[in-house]
Write a protein that binds this DNA or RNA. Structure first.
Length: 422
RNA sequence: GGAGACGUCGCAUAGCCCGGUCGAGUGCGCCUCACUGCUAAUGAGGUAGACCCCUUAAAGGGUCUCGGGGGUUCAAAUCCCCCCGUCUCCGCCA
């Protein structure tokens, strides 16, 4: 949510941001109009209420006939207050609902455009030349089968399309990835945290996932729960309605959870393998910090992501995601995309978002800064999204016979240097 | 799943039966000041948030918040209803 005072004072900036995202700039004017009505309704209500408060006190002191007369007038006043309160409440609801429609302000540095208009910031590592190695790379589905690591057929049998089993070294690889990721994060000062995956609507709403992203969320209607699509949701909501001590900031959490995605609107996309699935595990960084530190924290998150991919010995590139593809909460987003040999393409494996005060305002997370309380900034970034990282490791580190070399960093966690055929 | 208790200003509690003098007492913690070589002790004062108006620099005025929502009433922490949460006991269970 954007500060209503900021919108009042800088409507053009907000309109420009909406336009840059390919979203409706006229919402700004609707918000401003609703805000006018809201404030007028508040003034009216509060004046009546003040009158009533004074009046009520005088009733307590009065006696006999005098009191009876006063009660008559009190009734009338009470009705007026009630009506004004109803108008106020309606105006506030409307104004709030409209304000929530606005996406976060764009960082002026973010490239403008749609999904394809990202800017490549850097390439790290070089894609392996399989021609030189003298063999055609197998894709992760085939490798997964040869190694007894991934069972897609049975995933489909039991749960349907986009489900899978990780078996044998596949399962071990997940544990190794998570262990390596979390222990690195803890060394870097993160607080490890395992989150709920079912959350109530306010948590979902607050993190900004019930807007245009709502289609991609599993919902348990009977119990009014959402299945989180990322632990960003329970991590952001962890401090919901709290006032944090600014001296304790930044608070850095490394969360681990399963993630659930409907992948609505992705029909036909990545239908093979485990690149795009309904359920996967992920370790996520989440940071609460002072707004003035957000840009630096964002860079730090990106740096940790790069270190992780380097440790996995995977070639990748970093992109500056374009305005139209940021989601409603991020002001700027960097993705790391790993080289996937059999697709001859870079594919997103991690993502780092700076949400400034947008989520914190929705979730009512503030800090005490001297005399003032004001919203904190929140940032999130992927440490490791398991299936896609497995894909990248298997495909990049495969040998001609289908065995796969284990990256050095993971060897202590796996107790092996190579995945053998089963 | 059954029975009961409870949810108050950082923490612990009072107030609820008998509605107005309660935005709310007390203790602890914390902050400021005083006193004292230092610390401790003692004394005095302070100690939530949101919003609106006015000015927009400060100050000031007002409204709301006693888990959440609704109702009764001129008036609700206090009475009534619903919801959420916590705890205790019993049963069941990873």
């Amino acid at each position: 949510m954007i500060d209503i005072k900021y919108i009042r004072e800088n409507p053009d900036v907000v309109r420009a941001s909406q336009r840059g995202r390919g979203e409706d700039p006229t919402i700004v004017d609707q918000v401003l109009a609703a805000d006018e009505i809201r404030r007028a309704a508040i003034v009216e209500f509060e004046a009546l209420r003040a009158e009533q408060n004074i009046f009520s006190k005088s009733v307590g002191a009065a006696k006999g006939d005098e009191k009876i007369g006063l009660l008559e007038r009190g009734k009338a006043l009470s009705a007026q207050v009630k009506a004004a309160d109803a108008r106020r409440s309606e105006a506030e609801t409307k104004s709030q609902a409209l304000t929530l429609l606005l996406s976060n302000l764009l960082d002026p540095a973010a490239p403008i455009g749609g999904e394809e208009d990202f800017v490549v910031l850097e390439h790290i590592g070089t894609p392996r030349d399989f021609t030189k190695d003298g063999f055609e790379p197998k894709d992760h589905v085939e490798l997964g089968k040869l190694l007894g690591a991934i069972d897609i057929e049975r995933g489909a049998k039991v749960s349907g399309a986009r489900f899978y089993y990780l078996t044998g070294v596949g399962a071990l690889l997940e544990f190794a990835l998570i262990n390596y990721a979390i222990s690195s994060a803890v060394k870097a000062g993160f607080i490890p945290i395992i989150t709920p995956v079912l959350v109530k609507p306010p948590a979902m709403e607050g993190t900004g996932f019930l807007g245009q992203a709502a289609e991609d969320i599993f919902r348990l209607e009977k119990d009014d729960f959402y299945l989180v699509g990322t632990s960003e949701v329970p991590l952001a909501a962890f401090h919901m309605d709290e006032i944090l001590n600014s001296e304790k900031l930044p608070l850095r959490y490394a969360g681990y959870s399963t993630c659930f995605r409907r992948e609505a609107g992705a029909h036909g996309k990545d239908t093979r393998g485990i690149i795009r699935v309904h359920q996967f595990d992920k370790a996520e960084m989440f940071i609460f910090c002072k707004p003035e530190d957000a840009v630096a924290e964002h860079q730090r998150i990106l740096q940790w992501e790069k270190e992780f991919l380097n440790a996995m010995e995977i070639p990748f590139r970093v992109i500056d995601v374009a305005s139209g593809d940021l989601g409603s909460s991020a002001t700027r987003k960097f993705d790391c995309e790993a080289w996937i040999p059999t697709q001859n393409a870079y594919r997103e494996v991690t993502s780092a978002s700076n949400c400034t005060e947008f989520q914190a305002r929705r979730l009512n997370i503030r800090m005490k800064d001297g005399q003032n309380t004001k919203p904190v900034a929140t940032l999130n970034g992927t440490l490791v999204a398991v299936p896609r990282t497995i894909v990248a490791i298997l495909e990049n580190h495969q040998n001609a016979d289908g065995t796969v070399n284990v990256p050095k960093a993971l060897q202590p966690f796996l107790g092996m240097t190579r995945f053998e055929l089963v």
